[in-house]
Nucleic acid binder design. Structure first.
Lengths: 202, 202
DNA sequence: CATACAGTGGACTGTCAAGTCCAATCCGGT
DNA sequence: ACCGGATTGGACTTGACAGTCCACTGTATG
């Protein structure tokens, strides 16, 4: 029975959270395989035994990082909760582009980065990542449904498909942004996604 | 003066090509950092000294792999040369989806995978990858220009932007395909991209 | 204040990776 | 046949890395 993520008492919980936060920061920046446990150990100001006290092994820690990354990305987009007008969708897109400008187009999408490294080889991580995308596109799909119900979208529009296509434009826009180090790539992708959605106005 | 990629004579060139081909296969499948030179050595049936005879170090080999990957991906899409009708674009998209079905949605986009691992940290690789995307979208942009010249596209359509947005949909569709292990994700993304382009018909 | 256990520090081990080195072999030109 | 550089084989060095181990400390509770 390897020391998995036992429920903790008091200060131990803080340590565990510090480890996950530090590991997430390092892994999102440098990648899963390029990050060593010693990098995490140093970044979290923690000893080796603590890592193994709270996580069974590196894979276990990585899965906690996957969960934290998804929560972090979605948590950074409060607009998701209220996407029920063209203006709100547009403002949401603007903020996504602004983040890329601020980061000088470095980093891409943290979730997308994990997909490339984990989806094919770690089944558990793949399920978590797929769940992350579901949590990402569902609010948009629901928003589009509300807009359709209010007559802002034609009856024959398919909110779920539109949401998926929009998420794809976003992810791809981020890949191009990272590759070209140019946030305008995301702008172009999201402009097209918005135009496509708006083409379903009544 | 480290033994870089000296111009080779006869059989040496074959060895070098064998190394690059094997390294490309392994790296595209498992990732750059997860691939060891010993993996490459074994896959190419080559000795350690040969790797260092033809490449200065791992980074040097990786850059050759980046070039080979770009050539491979673009070479696998002969349709790129002739994209001057909606039918041809649609057929091109169909073949991209077919590849994902065949691969059971495993692997994503080889170029996109390299972007995630290299774009932020290896400037030379970033330039190569950006060049790869340029070579990818240029034929589409030219095709759309020809279509515009022939009156199949409105004058106010912007072929370059449409090509970029389409490439983004494709890349993002591949990310979602890989994350969800479902080639339909690429289908949805490319359907939307096609609809967006077609919305500029006269 | 005792004591039991969660939490902590850090040395240690086994394995494996990148990169070096040099002797052996191949092969085109003379 | 012989020379010299290109090519090759593989042992070796050095430095990480993941994971183990055990002694020590804090603290919550009786």
């Amino acid at each position: 029975m390897p020391a998995a993520d036992a429920p903790i008492t008091s200060r131990g919980r803080a340590t565990r959270e510090r480890i996950v936060a530090a590991a997430t920061e390092v892994i999102v920046r440098r990648g899963v395989t390029a990050t060593t446990l010693d990098d995490v150990r140093a970044a979290a100001s923690v000893s080796k035994s603590q890592l193994y006290h709270y996580f069974a092994d590196k894979d276990d820690l990585v899965r906690a990082v996957v969960a934290a990354t998804i929560d972090g990305v979605l948590g950074g987009q409060p607009q998701l909760a209220e996407l029920s007008s063209w203006r709100m969708i547009s403002a949401w897109f603007d903020s996504l582009v602004a983040v890329q400008v601020e980061r000088h187009a470095i980093g891409g999408c943290p979730i997308g980065g994990l997909v490339g490294e984990l989806a094919d080889h770690d089944d558990k991580a793949q399920v978590m990542l797929a769940g992350g995308y579901a949590r990402w596109e569902a609010p948009l799909a629901r928003g589009l449904e509300r807009m359709r119900a209010r007559g802002r979208l034609r009856r024959d529009a398919n909110p779920a498909r539109l949401a998926t296509a929009t998420l794809a434009s976003m992810q791809g826009g981020l890949v191009l942004t990272q590759a070209r180090r140019d946030p305008e790539q995301l702008r172009i992708a999201l402009d097209a996604a918005l135009a496509h959605m708006r083409s379903f106005r009544p």
